[in-house]
């Protein structure tokens, strides 16, 4: 009977030590992995947080191509002039697989060449595989004749 009690006690002690060892090993692993994971996770991209004014070169491209892609707060924004000569702005990142879309003036559509996705000028999906519309942004002409893109979704 005594030996049985001894065995149980040993077993309990061994289980407890095993548990302690397991917890220690997990803690050790976590303390090694955590800094590595944090190190690999990139910091949020810095960029101007307010409205962005198009440069002279970007305005020239907009005039010539009818569209230009500009960086706003680390995002690619498509600024284009629609058939009624109104300025519009959409997120240039295709919602399918992240390619950069373009404005096709002849068809009056926004087109992604990667997987043939098509959106209307409000960013709604017309055809192809994109699952979501393109987020809209605000582009307006300022008093000095420049173009300003506001990062907030319209």
């Amino acid at each position: 009977m005594d030996s049985l009690t001894d065995n149980t006690a040993k077993h309990t002690r061994r289980s407890f030590l095993d548990l302690l060892l397991g917890l220690g090993a997990t803690g050790w692993l976590a303390s090694v992995l955590y800094p590595v994971i944090r190190y690999l996770t990139p910091l949020p991209s810095a960029g101007p947080s307010g409205p962005v004014k198009l440069s002279g070169e970007q305005l020239k491209t907009l005039d010539k191509e009818r569209f230009v892609i500009v960086p706003v707060q680390g995002k690619r924004i498509l600024v284009f002039s629609d058939p009624a000569q109104n300025l519009r702005a959409l997120d240039a990142r295709c919602t399918h697989e992240g390619c950069t879309v373009q404005y096709v003036p002849g068809e009056a559509v926004i087109w992604c060449a990667c997987h043939n996705g098509r959106y209307d000028l409000d960013g709604r999906v017309l055809s192809g595989p994109p699952p979501r519309p393109l987020p809209q942004y605000v582009a307006r002409q300022d008093a000095e004749g420049g173009v300003v893109v506001t990062p907030q979704t319209a």
């Binding site: 960086p71 690619r76 950069t100 373009q102 060449a113």
Partner: peptide, 10 residues
């Protein structure tokens, strides 16, 4: 060029 649109046939 991250600011160029994807071109056809990619």
């Amino acid at each position: 060029n991250p600011l160029a649109p994807a071109y056809p046939g990619i």
